[in-house]
Design a protein around this nucleic acid. Structure first.
Lengths: 337, 337
DNA sequence: TTGAAAGCGCTAACAG
DNA sequence: CTGTTAGCGCTTTCAA
């Protein structure tokens, strides 16, 4: 058994409340006598190796200092730039005395024990969750913040301006003289608002540059590669939805002997270590992933602290920026083969 | 306030213990009358929207069903193949009704609240932790399992046989006629037993093949690249410690116009998506990362369940395998330039 | 600032 | 199988 405040109280000859208060820092020590007593209590606690029992505190206070990180997609949560977001969340919460619990949401309903059972004080929702989950959470009035999804404007959220990202990418290509620009989304990518937003941004930049419709490459990679290389209307510049697509395309172009950027320009999304070291280094749309975690944590902590005032939802938008590297160059029409 | 067993007890006209027992499934319902009662209790609980209060249960039982994932290295925990390990851990624990809490260990001592405060029932330790942390944990007699480190044989652990991995890699190169084989570890890699183990395996395979000493490339990448390209004794085959090194070298060789595998063979460690899609696809030493998480979780859960029997530590070793792809080929002496 | 006392909601030992 | 009765260790009124 571990040491409790009662044992300390007995040794110190004071009440357990006093011990608790001193150890919690609730006693200012304004009067000398009081301060001396406090010191003594702290010393005894130290000697006995006392540690606040977090379970008892959580029970009594009704707060665990735990935060749930809710997500549905295993493959996505620790993918590429998201690891930076997660690490940043962990650190930000840690600084505030909170800790993150990984809470995958699936049919197993095991998330319920954590979320509905009150093991957490709030949750960070990564991307979209099934509606019945978000409903359950809002029924509980559990503070939450959405990351990477602003479809529900009644919830606080942090998102990247994907429209702007798409715009930047396409504008860059248009500036290099590209007229036929494609947007490639791999078939394995789950539906997400960022897809349409990036596409809209691309289309808008193309419109501003007096160009026509963007090509939209969906489906399996073979099809995409095929259309890029052998299609009737061949793009000279391709914008990739994420690191996955850039990796695949870069590889495929190498296989088929299409030189990047001489014969084809490639722009990616997300700036990773691997991106910088591709052959050639990838021109990409990046954003401050750390900031997402930081802002998300901050918003959630605000909400938790101000539960009474039930403050209105906050929305933050992160602006992306274009990082120009070696995978883009002037447009060159490839001859028919 | 949420519904408690007392409210249900009152409505059902039974005692709170009965409610708790029924809801917990402790009542078999062998007798008809009892079964009917149990059904009624469950129905009332359902109607009232009752949820077991996990905080109260944790307090009362002295168990939280939480598991801490302890690590010191942000950059490493979600890196490459480790994400697979983490996801596998999460799932395995989830299946057993446990959840994982991310617990970075650093000077902030915030890990103490989680670990020493009793917010978790056991911990998974990723790689090595400062000694005072492991000591504190064993003082607490908190069940633990070490992942990727077997330096303390008194603790349960799951490790990859890195010696065998190194051996496989070097044997492969030797079989292709390579005589000068180097092992490259980037300077940013923190000291870890796997480095020596892989090197020993490499050396051993070289010995078996009648070759001399392996070259050991350490330090900044420029030096390594320089020695590979311009050194007095130039390796024809390089084994990379991890994905980092393979990415860097593959890129550098491309920059300097050294063809892989025609002029230089490259073998990596860890099999990632990106590895398969490098140009050329990387020959690499891979292992079953899912299994690590699975075994780790299983061992820890065993330990937690058998606290009384304080079972002796279990050690599991995962055997790696060589995945031959396009980055290795017959040895060719490069001419002096 | 301090002490006494009443919880927080569930579990568990015991008697019936 | 059920009810009674103590806790688990900390927080939080309320008086003093």
């Amino acid at each position: 058994m571990s040491v409790t405040i009662y044992e300390i109280a007995e040794k110190a000859g004071v009440s357990s409340s006093t011990v608790a208060r001193v150890l919690r820092g609730d006693v200012k020590g304004t009067y000398r006598r009081s301060a001396e007593n406090a010191d003594r209590i702290r010393r005894i606690a130290e000697e006995l190796g006392y540690r606040t029992n977090a379970r008892a505190r959580a029970f009594s206070r009704g707060r665990t200092h735990g935060i749930g990180l809710l997500y549905t997609n295993d493959a996505w949560i620790f993918e590429g730039v998201n690891t930076t977001v997660v690490n940043s969340l962990v650190r930000s919460f840690q600084d505030a005395g909170y800790h993150l619990t990984l809470t995958p949401v699936d049919d197993s309903r095991s998330w319920e024990e954590v979320v509905l059972g009150g093991q957490i004080d709030g949750c960070v929702i990564f991307q979209v969750l099934p509606e019945y989950v978000t409903e359950a959470i809002s029924d509980l009035k559990l503070p939450l913040v959405l990351l990477g999804d602003d479809s529900d404007q009644t919830c606080s959220h942090v998102v990247v301006d994907d429209y702007a990202g798409g715009y930047l990418a396409a504008k860059h290509l248009a500036g290099l003289g590209h007229k036929k620009i494609a947007f490639y989304v791999h078939e394995s990518v789950k539906p997400h608002c960022s897809i349409e937003q990036r596409r809209d941004g691309i289309q808008s930049a193309m419109g501003d540059a007096g160009l026509g419709e963007a090509m939209w490459l969906l489906g399996p990679e073979e099809d995409a590669v095929n259309r890029i290389i052998h299609g009737n209307v061949r793009p000279t510049g391709v914008i990739c939805y994420s690191n996955l697509e850039s990796t695949l395309l870069m590889h495929a172009m190498w296989q088929y002997g299409v030189s990047v950027p001489n014969q084809l320009s490639l722009v990616g999304f997300n700036d990773l270590f691997a991106t910088k070291h591709m052959t050639p280094p990838l021109t990409t749309v990046g954003f401050d992933a750390k900031k997402i975690g930081k802002l998300g944590a901050q918003i959630l902590l605000d909400t938790i602290d101000n539960e009474a005032i039930d403050c209105k939802p906050q929305g933050k938008i992160i602006k992306p920026k274009l990082i120009v590297r070696g995978s883009t160059g002037p447009a060159v029409e490839r001859d028919c083969q």
